[in-house]
């Protein structure tokens, strides 16, 4: 309960609901996360028809609806396609604001990979910069997308 109830004689109530969620990453998503956790490797999937390499991998090509099965190991380096800085805190964000989000196209991939950017001031960022993935320590990794701590500029 908040607000000046004694002055206004009106009650305000705060809800405190956390909705618990759990979903399976699936066959393809699980392998992607496990390779990051166990081997510090980022894997994608190549479409046999249009040769597009997806990262994060998916089981179906979104253009030709082909079933994908060819795994491709990708570099942990890539090119920054775009970025944005979030100053407003929301409860779902993985770290405290300001957060710099970026989309990185890894070498060998055809799609952008969304992640956090770190070790860089937003003013120093430029589209087209070379970036490198920074993994967490092995004992901290938990088969999560955050097993990659962030992408940092490659010097």
């Amino acid at each position: 309960m908040v607000g000046k109830v004694e002055e206004t004689e009106r009650f305000l109530f705060d809800g405190k609901v956390d909705i618990p969620h759990k979903y399976s990453a699936g066959k393809v998503g699980s392998r992607f996360l496990i390779e990051m956790r166990d081997n510090e490797k980022i894997f994608g999937m190549r479409c046999p028809t249009c040769k597009l390499v997806y990262v994060p991998p998916r089981s179906t090509c979104k253009y030709c609806f082909e079933q994908l099965s060819e795994w491709v190991e990708l570099s942990d380096k890539g090119t920054l396609l775009t970025y944005a800085v979030a100053h407003q805190a929301t409860p779902i964000q993985p770290v405290k604001p300001p957060i710099t989000y970026g989309i990185v196209q890894l070498d060998g991939a055809d799609t952008g990979f969304v992640h956090i950017l770190g070790e860089v001031e937003p003013t120093q960022l430029k589209v087209g910069m070379r970036m490198k993935a920074v993994f967490k320590d092995k004992k901290e990794r938990a088969a999560s997308i955050l097993d990659i701590k962030y992408f940092k500029p490659l010097k």
Partner: peptide, 11 residues
Amino acid sequence: YVFVSYKLPLP
């Protein structure tokens, strides 16, 4: 198989 768990706060 990896299961992703999280809590979605609904203030």
